[in-house]
Design a protein around this nucleic acid. Sequence first.
DNA 1: TATTCGATGTGCT
DNA 2: GCACATCGAATAC
Length: 209
Amino acid sequence: MNNKRIYIPLSRKFYLRNTLEVSKDLLGKLLIRKSGNKILAGKIVETEAYIGEHDPACHAYKKFTNRSKTLYETGGTIYVYFVYGKYHCFNIVTEEKGKGCAVLIRAIEPLMGLKSMKINRGKIKTIFDLTNGPSKLCLCLGIDLSYNGGDIAGKELFITESMEKNNFQIYVSKRIGLNSGKDFPYRFFIKNNPYVSKHIFNKEAKLIN
DNA sequence: TATTCGATGTGCT
DNA sequence: GCACATCGAATAC
């Protein structure tokens, strides 16, 4: 891949749509992180939808708190939060301001800047362990709370169309790691992609295209 | 102020 | 497959 290529971020409009649609459409897109003249990038292979105040697993279910306030911003806002005392999760707000909806990026397939990613991440068993989890990819790309509330159509961290043709099949399953709202089929991932995070629920996943 | 919990990851079995 | 580290945020009181 050519580092000199100019990447055009998807506009905010892309995110001002139904959360499930955005979750599906993000698969196959490129997540780009620029730092100085370095480019770290990966293809999005797994996402989850969190759909506002009526979704028991969504942070907006418990109303407005200091942590969840950026979730109520307009679609295209970056929502990063801190969990389990040591990890970060990276989301993109969807739909109109005030809805409290977002897509969690759960896994990417690393494509550029693998060397830096490995340094950021620390020891791994195989290359497949590098970015196959929401907090793993945050570590690799250096995504932390300083990005919370930022614009996903910005310069440093953004998503762009893939240059490859996207001919893959999409599976949908239950979401990972929840205690409530666990039965909603809001997790999307690319069939047979080895960088998908967990294999739990994959057996019962359904093909949707 | 006290207590519980968590959209995870790691390591061991 | 399963236990558990870890600590900030949310909730209970």
